[in-house]
Computed example of a mutant assay.
Amino acid sequence: MANVVLKLPINEIKKIENHYKKQSITPPQYATFAAKVNGTNVTVYKSGKVMFQGRDAEKEASMWQGKSEALPTKKANKKSVNEHSFYPPNHFFETSHIGSDEAGTGDYFGPITVAAVFIPKEKIALIKELGVRDSKDLKDPMIERIAKDLVYAEIPYTLMTLKNEKYNQLQRKGWNQGKMKAMLHYHAIQKLLDKLKGTTIDGILIDQFCQPQVHQKYLRTEKLTLQPDTYFMTKAESHSLSVAAASIIARAKFVKEMDKLSKESGITIPKGASNKVDQTAAYLVKKYGKDVLEKYAKLHFANTEKANKYL
């Protein structure tokens, strides 16, 4: 999908809005105007940037390009990370939608877990009563309790776990963590869609960990495409109860897997990637041999090398 971004003066932006007035659509949150023409989305952002995205993006942008230089879209900063055509519409968070989120990606020890959750709009009030919110704001015991409550309430969900042996195998094969996460989200969502056949679903929201175009590229390398009506946004768990519930279920599973590793090893396996993690890795190597980390850790993390100073 072609993607062109222009930085234009206000008078040119006014011309664009007037030119595409008949094709205008509801703009995303960070935009002031949006239109869809000939399979191309035209989005005007508050920053003065205009994004042309779609099969005729370059053609549409060329009409205005003389007034500006194209901006490189790869250098997205924090302010523009949500400036894309996959941003959910304002009303989306009160609809019946699927949300997906992951846990364990920044932890040296333990797997990556991804959950997808469907919350029908008639159960939104119940989910709020259960205390569902961003798992980062909750302690692990509370996360485990809410996760059990969600299961008891028969909220549809699916869960994927990428254990360390497979993670390390894929990493050596050339997969980066972004691709692993994209694939986990895809399969969690697809399994949930299969489970929900016949159910009205208003869309899918993925907690964004890379630009949507990059996410799509990861899927294409495995001959897959995004499911229809998929949206992306950062910090989605702060806006969508479906994503918040997914973050809780994914985190609860990650904690459970970490507890298993602790029980197997006979010591408490720490979360995160701190000095304590380095020391624990060194202890495991001393006790069980270097190969033990294949099962316990994400070997390409810097902690593997840092652990050597404790050996």
Rank of each mutant, 00 (worst) to 15 (best):
D134F: 04
P89H: 05
T113Y: 01
A182D: 06
K121Y: 03
F118Y: 14
T105W: 05
K173Q: 13
G104K: 03
K78D: 05
G104F: 07
T105S: 12
G104W: 02
Y87P: 03
V117W: 06
I143T: 07
Y87Q: 13
R145A: 06
F86S: 14
I112V: 15
H84V: 05
S85A: 09
K173R: 14
S80R: 11
I127Y: 00
T95Y: 07
A116W: 08
Y167A: 11
Y167I: 08
E154V: 11
E154T: 14
V151Q: 13
M142G: 02
E94T: 12
I119P: 10
S100R: 03
A103W: 10
S96K: 09
L184M: 15
D149M: 08
I143A: 09
H91Y: 13
F118D: 01
S85M: 13
I146R: 11
Y167P: 03
A76G: 07
P141I: 01
F93I: 09
I146W: 01
E122F: 10
I112G: 00
T113M: 08
S135Y: 06
T73G: 12
Q171E: 12
Q171T: 09
P88Y: 08
V117A: 02
K181L: 15
K166L: 15
P111A: 01
V114K: 02
D140N: 14
M142L: 08
L130N: 01
N168A: 08
I98C: 02
S100D: 09
Y152R: 14
M183D: 02
R172G: 12
I146Q: 01
I155K: 10
L159Q: 07
M160S: 12
E154L: 14
I146N: 00
M160D: 04
D134H: 04
K148M: 13
G131Y: 05
F118W: 00
K139Y: 05
S96G: 13
P89T: 03
E129F: 03
I155D: 04
Q169I: 10
H97M: 04
P141C: 00
P141M: 00
K179C: 08
K148P: 14
A125H: 13
R145W: 06
I146F: 00
K148Y: 14
G99V: 04
N90R: 05
Q169G: 11
R145I: 09
F93T: 09
I127M: 04
N164V: 02
M160E: 15
H91M: 10
G106Q: 07
R133D: 13
M142I: 07
E154K: 15
E94R: 06
R133T: 15
E165Y: 12
P120D: 06
Y108C: 08
P156H: 01
T73M: 06
G174K: 03
E144W: 05
Y108K: 14
K173C: 09
F86L: 12
P89F: 11
L184H: 04
N168Y: 00
I119Q: 01
E83F: 11
I119F: 02
G110T: 01
K74W: 10
K121V: 02
A147Y: 02
I155C: 07
K123H: 07
G104P: 12
